[in-house]
Nucleic acid binder design. Sequence first.
DNA 1: AAGGGCCTGTGAATAAATTGACATATACTT
DNA 2: AAGTATATGTCAATTTATTCACAGGCCCTT
Lengths: 212, 212
Amino acid sequence: MGKDNKVSLTVIRRLPKYHRYLSDLMDRGISRISSQELSVLTGFTASQIRQDLNNFGGFGQQGYGYNVEDLQRELGKILGLDQKYNAVIVGAGNLGQAIANYRGFEDAGFRVLSMFDRNPRVIGLKIRDIEIRDMEHIEDFIKENDVEIGIITTPKESAQQVADIYVKAGVKGIWNFAPTDINVPDDMIIENVRLNESLFILSYFLKAATEK
Amino acid sequence: MGKDNKVSLTVIRRLPKYHRYLSDLMDRGISRISSQELSVLTGFTASQIRQDLNNFGGFGQQGYGYNVEDLQRELGKILGLDQKYNAVIVGAGNLGQAIANYRGFEDAGFRVLSMFDRNPRVIGLKIRDIEIRDMEHIEDFIKENDVEIGIITTPKESAQQVADIYVKAGVKGIWNFAPTDINVPDDMIIENVRLNESLFILSYFLKAATEK
DNA sequence: AAGGGCCTGTGAATAAATTGACATATACTT
DNA sequence: AAGTATATGTCAATTTATTCACAGGCCCTT
């Protein structure tokens, strides 16, 4: 299914932005868009947009452009947003709670079933309807509830240990917020969120602007 | 100061990772490292590491490698981590609180002076020693306290409005967590954190792995 | 139903990023 | 103190990404 040859990561990282703008256009009731118009919105060149989309199939029509709804749906499928994923969070601090609370993830098909922590003070608490459980029970929980995504929002010192547990329990992907690289088997899918690095980039440009 | 020609964004985005690994090495008491060894740690090729570092000056020594402490300090300077920046947060929800609580930012020279929100229920509360104030006072506060960085952790609907306030009040850079693009003058520095997009990428690879 | 204008898909050209290769300088051993 | 091993800085080669350009198909008007 889909096109055969592997698509470069560079292209894949642009897909969510296309999807987001298409969703916006749908909300605004716009049903048709050209690569040229998308270019103005996204800041990518029209040519690049056409090239990118063509990696996955010919969604457009000559003389017309792209149907917003169709393209949004197709990109959603490509991004796996038509699937439901169960997730758990380890690390029930502020960041973990922020993620547990964020409704945007549900729209994308992600459901946080439970949070886990070592701190007895938070165990038993609920964020919305999500219970914080003792780490002791995490492996069984993951196996019994078909959890496919493990989220790490612990300090960096615990991150590898948590990753090992996730690997052992059989999750398929890890969303890591700890500012460290974790080592896992090759078939495990990892996506890191590097808040520190993002802030450092901001700092770099601030300094560069000051020196000019 | 530094090398004259503009360094590509691609290179700059790798600098924080170098800095992080060098800090780790310092913690472990290691004083010397070669590009080859850094390659093993970071996953970048040794050649790429040498090319990257050389954009900013010849930090290494033939036959020896790089002095960990010197290189870490130099990268810190390049990234602007030797400077202090005052920041404020708009949006005192979980994410805003998570950021206000995160000590890692202070190590990087960032100080959150205040948070702002519209919700009367949270105004007056304190996160650590950071007070949540009414949005009414934000412009004066920014001007009176030399605030250079504005952080946006509101829902996307308010993000542009907050950005406009930041522009008017004269911050130099914006760290935006809202899942939308904001429009600001060209000289404003913006760094976006796209949690949604990151999750979509994870979803993409999960789906791809399932279909194999 | 015919024709002009529009816009895609795509192959070729250009630009950017990564990797390779090596001359040269320093460290370290004997 | 001489010789060997090591590792940088850099230029060249290769690979990857982006942009250009246009043939051809579809829409839309008349």
